[in-house]
Amino acid sequence: MKIRRFYATPLFSALLLAGAVQAQYSVTDEIRVLQGFKAGGGSDTLAQLTQPFLRESLGAEFINEYIPGATGAIAWTRLTQQSAKDGSVVSITNTPMLMTNYIMNDAIRYSIDEMTPIANVVTDPGIIVVPEDSPYQTLQDFLTAAEENPGQLTVANSGVGGDDFFSTIMIENATGLSFQKVPFQGDGPSATAALGGQVDASFNNLGNVFAHIQSGSLRPLAIFTRERLDILPDVPTMVENDIDIVAGSSRGYSAPADIPDEARDELIAAFEALKENQEFQETARERAMVLDIRTGDDYGQMVQEMEGQFEEIWAEVKDDVNQ
């Protein structure tokens, strides 16, 4: 992801001071948003959360284009190599799969150096959910069954290289257990598989399955946070079960490299304004979205650091995964 040192230009400062006053995006009145997963997943959840507020601050419509496949790589290849570099096209960028795609597969040709970081918005913790009629009432029930049936329990994830895929591997490494990993094209289809009883469990993200947890159609067994969350006080963490795993998916927006500074300033200002928007904050809480807004260079630095971390993890596990 191309990081350019960011300074508060007069335009950027003016946009921040304007706050909730509606502006007019200088590039276009329609911004195309490439999504690398099917509708209904974590990327789409982020889009539905942010875009009404971004539309108001930028005065532009957001047109979501769903391009599922290859764990987001098709969309991100299109963003970096086939999209206009004028600020009219952006993409929702999901980590860690944004980087793990090419870390794990030399055939994938894009990289974060070919993107302009705009903003991370949420860091969505991982969670294990099972169907409402599942025999597994607790995490220990689930782990015991996995121990008694090595490689037999089916675990859905959002795709090879995603955070759910990696958290499954980390649990296998930490416990010595093994699961039958079932990849889907996004969190939505993974959750749907659990809802329909097609898999024993889905390793998913809280924001995507929270409504199902509230309705009782999915049962949470454990969450991958350091401490329990206020919105799910009865759901234990992996850490308190002596499995030291904290994981999740961060989701934000990026543009192609070398978009005009003016467009970059305006986009960043729109996301900075979300930090002070009380309606946005409340909407995020209602949807169990854990906000983690980092813009511009800060987002770029975050992604670069994660790239290094997952390069190390993949180097440790790739031989076992590829067997």
Rank of each mutant, 00 (worst) to 15 (best):
I243R: 14
Y7L: 13
N120R: 14
P150S: 04
I293E: 09
R78I: 03
L49I: 04
L153R: 10
I213Q: 13
R226K: 15
S43R: 03
V199Q: 07
S26Y: 05
T123L: 09
D261R: 12
W314T: 04
E65T: 12
L34N: 06
A47L: 06
L206F: 08
G248F: 11
Q323M: 06
Y66F: 12
E307P: 02
T283Q: 15
G308S: 05
M289N: 14
D297E: 13
S88W: 12
E227F: 09
I259V: 09
G188S: 01
Q304D: 10
E65V: 08
D261L: 13
D29P: 06
M115R: 06
G216V: 11
V290C: 02
F184R: 03
P236V: 04
Q323Y: 01
R55N: 10
M99A: 12
G188Q: 01
V317A: 09
S111T: 13
L79W: 07
I3S: 07
G69V: 06
G196I: 03
T116C: 03
Y66K: 10
G162A: 09
D297G: 02
L49S: 08
A18N: 15
A191V: 04
G151A: 11
T192V: 08
S254I: 02
L54C: 00
R251F: 14
L195F: 07
N322V: 09
R251L: 15
P96S: 04
S158L: 00
S217E: 15
E311C: 01
E65S: 05
M97H: 13
E312T: 11
D297W: 01
K275T: 12
F62A: 00
P233G: 09
D261G: 11
A73E: 05
V21W: 03
F310N: 01
I63R: 06
P150Q: 11
L34S: 04
I231H: 08
D86G: 06
A270T: 13
P117I: 06
R55D: 07
L177I: 15
M238W: 10
A75F: 08
P150C: 11
A222K: 00
F37A: 14
Q22D: 10
S215I: 14
Q35D: 09
M289D: 05
N173K: 15
V317W: 12
E240L: 01
L58W: 05
